[in-house]
């Protein structure tokens, strides 16, 4: 019984609590590599605390959709964080759903965010929303196919089962199709999380604004929720990546010592991928909007190849 309560709380703490830290870490490293001192690694927390204590200014033209959106986005990503294995192979809401549900819960969050961006009636929001839909439409096939390649390797679409299978049979991990799926998923994650070759997370004023353009009218608590949801999304996506492709060290039960080791390794792995994101952001310029389909098209081709090579390896 206690395990039924501990695990969800643990996962929520990790995902909700540490997601701003990941963002802070990325910003800090990036600043350092550009030989700036950069803000404190805890800056995202300060921002959130500040924003949560403020009242909100809401656009007159907007409706209840606008006010509901931050909650819907936040909660849908909270649900995802309970379906994804984080520290242990066991997952709190295992019977609730699989990767398909996760993909469509992301779609739910996105759907409402785009609606809210249209709700304010400003051209910025509309532009951001339209581009977000374009990028996600291009990213979704690649994401689904790469996850399918993994699902076919592990014979299940359930993330907990996938991680379990890959953990126990490490020969499966030495698999070219997983490598291809990994590459494809990496590209997709960069696009979905709105990082640099696709979107610039630091400003809404660049002409290619996507995610930040949609958040333009949010303020106070709403902005805090939306920002928090976006950093949680990044962490959840990285967690999926890490626990599918590098599952070593993840606890297979709820033993305390196992969880501690799992947590330490988890921090290292996520830190490593955050660092990779920094490197990517440092070494690439933002793509032109209409080059993005090319990038995502490449990811798509990689994921198709992942599945084809799966047929051959079998």
């Amino acid at each position: 019984m206690t395990s039924n309560i501990i695990l969800p709380i643990l996962q929520l703490i990790v995902i909700v609590g540490f997601s701003p830290l990941v963002k802070g870490f990325i910003n800090k490293i990036e600043a350092r590599l550009q030989s700036r001192r950069g803000a404190s690694i805890f800056q995202p927390y300060y921002n959130l605390v500040k924003l949560l204590q403020k009242d909100a200014v809401v656009s007159e033209t907007s409706s209840w959709i606008f006010r509901a959106t931050p909650y819907v986005t936040f909660v849908s990503i909270l649900i995802i964080s309970l379906i994804v294995p984080v520290l242990s192979v066991k997952v709190p809401l295992n019977f609730t759903g699989d990767i398909i549900l996760i993909i469509y819960l992301f779609a739910l969050a996105r759907f409402f965010l785009v609606l809210s961006s249209l709700d304010t009636g400003s051209a910025f929001g509309g532009m951001g929303g339209s581009r977000e839909m374009m990028v996600s439409s291009m990213a979704e096939p690649a994401m689904i196919l790469s996850l399918f390649a993994v699902a076919l390797t592990a014979d299940s679409t359930n993330l907990s089962n996938i991680t379990n299978t890959l953990l126990n049979d490490s020969i499966l991990l030495l698999n070219p199709s997983l490598l291809l799926a990994f590459a494809a998923l990496g590209v997709v994650i960069i696009a979905e999380a709105g990082r640099i070759p696709v979107d610039n997370p630091y400003t809404h004023l660049e002409l290619t604004m996507i995610h930040e353009g949609m958040l333009l009218e949010f303020s106070g608590r709403y902005l805090a929720l939306a920002e928090w949801a976006s950093s949680m999304k990044l962490l959840v996506l990285l967690t999926i990546l890490v626990n599918i492709f590098l599952p070593w060290g993840i606890a297979d039960g709820l033993a305390f010592s196992g969880l501690i080791i799992a947590f330490a390794l988890y921090v290292v792995k996520i830190g490593f991928f955050a660092f990779v994101i920094v490197i990517v952001e440092m070494s690439f310029a933002k793509l032109r909007l209409f080059r993005i389909p090319n990038l995502l098209g490449t990811a798509f081709i990689l994921s198709i190849l992942a599945i084809i090579s799966l047929y051959v390896v079998r």
């Binding site: 009242d55 909100a56 200014v57 809401v58 656009s59 007159e60 033209t61 907007s62 006010r67 249209l118 304010t120 009636g121 400003s122 051209a123 929001g125 509309g126 532009m127 929303g129 339209s130 839909m133 333009l216 009218e217 106070g220 608590r221």
Partner: peptide, 27 residues
Amino acid sequence: FARKFYETWTCGRSPEPRLEYTATAFT
């Protein structure tokens, strides 16, 4: 927690329907 209602920021103009994104623009 309270909400204040104010007009949408449209770079200093007052918001009007012509500034909105249309279906044509969206796609």
